[in-house]
């Protein structure tokens, strides 16, 4: 008998002999993918919470409301077509982010302040 893994949350499912992917030609594209951002309460930034499929922006916004704010998680929503997001690549990680590492003088803790000086 093929192996079963319970790791998949709702209980044991077969893993051996189960393909991960279909062939490209039989894949019927779903509605476009949208990224969802929720403002949890006034005064906070919108934060990425996940994604969903919708045929257009108006429906995406409504689906986001139904899916991501069922438990009063938000007061404002953004939806963005996933294809419109440009992301930095992990390959560029070193050149993008490492050079900031030695500029410690940008942080207030870099500076020595004599004892007793307040409001600084």
């Amino acid at each position: 008998m093929s192996d079963l893994q319970a790791g998949g949350g709702h209980g044991a499912v077969p893993v051996t002999g189960v393909p991960a992917r279909g062939s490209a030609e039989e894949s019927r594209r779903d509605w476009p993918l949208w990224e969802v951002f929720v403002r949890a309460k006034r005064g906070l930034n919108h934060v990425h919470v996940g994604s969903l499929h919708a045929p257009d922006a108006a429906m995406a916004l409504r689906n986001a409301r139904d899916l991501y704010t069922r438990r009063q998680e938000g007061v404002s929503l953004w939806v963005v077509p996933a294809a419109s997001i440009t992301a930095s690549s992990p390959d560029e990680k070193d050149s993008f982010f490492d050079p900031a590492g030695d500029k410690i003088y940008r942080h207030p803790t870099f500076y020595d302040i004599p004892e007793g000086v307040e409001h600084l």
Partner: peptide
């Protein structure tokens, strides 16, 4: 890199499974 439409096809055609408890 998977597409939801493709994954649903895999479910519908029985190539991928779901938990037997259901």
């Amino acid at each position: 890199g998977a597409d939801r439409g493709e994954l649903l096809d895999m479910l519908h055609s029985g190539r991928q499974k779901y938990s037997s408890i259901f």
